[in-house]
Amino acid sequence: MSGLRWVKSSFSDAGGNNCVEVATLESGSAALRESDCPGIVLVASRAALGALVQGVKKDAFAPRSP
């Protein structure tokens, strides 16, 4: 995944640590990585990434009590 233009999240700390970075692939899919471990990259469609972001914003992934 060399040659990609990685963009850091606007919520990243000023020191450059603990950052989520995103890049767009030629296929239109999105690549995500953690700045502390850049060798591990998650690739997802734009639709899947959008659904994940919306779910997190809505707290849809929070653990629920039975």
Rank of each mutant, 00 (worst) to 15 (best):
A62F: 08
L52G: 00
G50M: 06
M1L: 12
P66R: 08
K58A: 10
V43P: 00
V20S: 01
V20K: 02
A31K: 02
G15T: 11
I40N: 12
A44T: 05
A48N: 09
L52A: 02
P63E: 07
M1S: 11
V43R: 03
V22T: 09
V7S: 15
L32R: 01
D13M: 14
T24L: 08
P63A: 10
A48E: 12
L4F: 01
A51N: 11
L52F: 08
S27R: 05
A30S: 11
L4H: 00
Q54D: 13
R33W: 00
K58H: 09
E21R: 04
V7D: 13
K57C: 10
G16D: 09
D59R: 14
R33V: 00
G15N: 07
R5D: 08
Q54I: 09
R5F: 08
L42G: 05
W6Q: 02
W6H: 03
V56L: 07
G15R: 04
N17V: 12
N18L: 14
P38S: 08
A47D: 13
G39W: 11
N17F: 14
A62L: 13
A47I: 09
G3C: 08
F11M: 11
A23T: 03
A47V: 11
C19E: 08
P63H: 10
P38K: 04
V53H: 02
F11Y: 15
L52H: 00
N18A: 15
K57H: 13
D13W: 11
S12H: 05
V43Q: 04
S9P: 04
A60R: 11
E34W: 11
G28Q: 03
C37D: 15
V53S: 01
R46G: 05
V22E: 01
D59W: 12
S2N: 14
R64G: 11
S10P: 03
S29V: 01
G3K: 09
S10N: 06
T24N: 10
A47Q: 08
E34P: 03
A60T: 07
P63G: 05
S10Y: 02
L25M: 10
G55T: 01
G28A: 06
A60G: 13
L42F: 06
N17A: 14
C19I: 11
A30T: 12
L4P: 00
S27Q: 06
L4K: 00
L25A: 10
E21N: 07
G28T: 02
P63K: 08
G39Y: 12
W6K: 02
A48K: 06
N17G: 12
R46C: 06
L52R: 00
W6D: 01
G39N: 12
N17H: 15
R64V: 11
L4G: 00
V41I: 10
S65G: 13
R5T: 14
A48D: 12
K8M: 15
R64A: 12
L42N: 05
G3W: 06
A14I: 14
V41A: 06
V22A: 09
E34V: 04
